[in-house]
Write a protein that binds this DNA or RNA. Sequence first.
DNA 1: TAGATTGTTAATCGATTAACAATC
DNA 2: TAGATTGTTAATCGATTAACAATC
Lengths: 217, 217
Amino acid sequence: MDKIKINVSMAVIRRLPKYYRYLDELVEKGITRISSKEFGKILGFTASQIRQDLNCFGGFGQQGYGYNVRELRDEIANILGLHKPNNAIIVGAGNLGQAIANYSGFRGSGFVLKAMFDINPRLVGISIGDIKIMDIDDMGEFIENTDINVGIICTPKEGAQSVAKRLTGEGIKAIWNFAPTDLEVPENVIVENVQLSESLMVLAYLMNERDRMENAQ
Amino acid sequence: MDKIKINVSMAVIRRLPKYYRYLDELVEKGITRISSKEFGKILGFTASQIRQDLNCFGGFGQQGYGYNVRELRDEIANILGLHKPNNAIIVGAGNLGQAIANYSGFRGSGFVLKAMFDINPRLVGISIGDIKIMDIDDMGEFIENTDINVGIICTPKEGAQSVAKRLTGEGIKAIWNFAPTDLEVPENVIVENVQLSESLMVLAYLMNERDRMENAQ
DNA sequence: TAGATTGTTAATCGATTAACAATC
DNA sequence: TAGATTGTTAATCGATTAACAATC
């Protein structure tokens, strides 16, 4: 895996999936090679930035030629760890939890959903696709018996912290959090937040700002 | 609305919802005043950053005292435009669309869902809560007759660009996009993306990176 | 008044962009 | 070989942090 800079900044890391997505599209289109200049034009980035980003992980290009599209895509998949299997459970089987359970994006990023949990007895027992919703009190045993390493929190804000505590107590080391709150977890636990409300407020701000600009003119 | 710096950076804008959320919690807890230092401790930011951020929009504090929690929260709500009503429609009434339709976060950010649209005849006609799913061919007329200014795209990747084109063609000026693709829209149209797959890949990367670190030791 | 804390300017840090020798 | 394009170093730009006079 070549070099791998010790501390790659989050700015770089958050661009990697975008690189991956566009490279995958290029592969599908049958394009076999691309220069940082062309790739930058597609992405709206500078060629410099792309070369700098990629060189955090290794020299994947060739002078005078550019990058082999398929090769680079596979390298990035490898850097992202997309081929490493990760078993996940969803906690909170309401609308959002069910939507995530049906989320097709799991395929292709190595995550496999193994079960869902909820406290609502009306939900416990039913299935979403081929995933059963279980009682949250059976969660500890399930995690012990299955090799689960990711918890996906889709509960309301109120229950999220206590769910996080239970998950980390059972040894879960990574959480994908959809609850609108910042979780407190032990140091070595990774939390990736999806803050829908923050995203919506940013949209509100930008709309509001545009109105202000228009009124000012 | 005091000053408002002309070009507030996205870095600042994306922190505003977090300020708002924590201030709202402080109000609920009955805390009436807070210094940038204390607030920074809660948020994990420096006091300096908080003061700099807020001063993009005005001087909301008082020397020797700090900030009035309720007042500051309301100022930020105002900056974000959370009290301005925005009517929205969802396009794509599958699992994700339905989850978003039930999303409680609309309350409190000024957005009101007015309808959902889909091409699937099995979905057209049914209701999610009190929101009807309509045929996408009736969308143009609905937008004309109702004052819609936000389109929420919850379709698969393939349909997203054509939906965006239809929406902007009908005069929609803001899109909340959940499809895993970058939309091309006219210049003055705002697009806020929620890229679940990118978030999941970042989680994969961070897990993978931790494994590398542990193996290196 | 004395202490606290702001708003704001200056200093630092980090990320992006430009430049270019190396080389395919 | 000549042209193209990389990997990498240096320059620039922007964002964060520190410092401090102003003032409640």
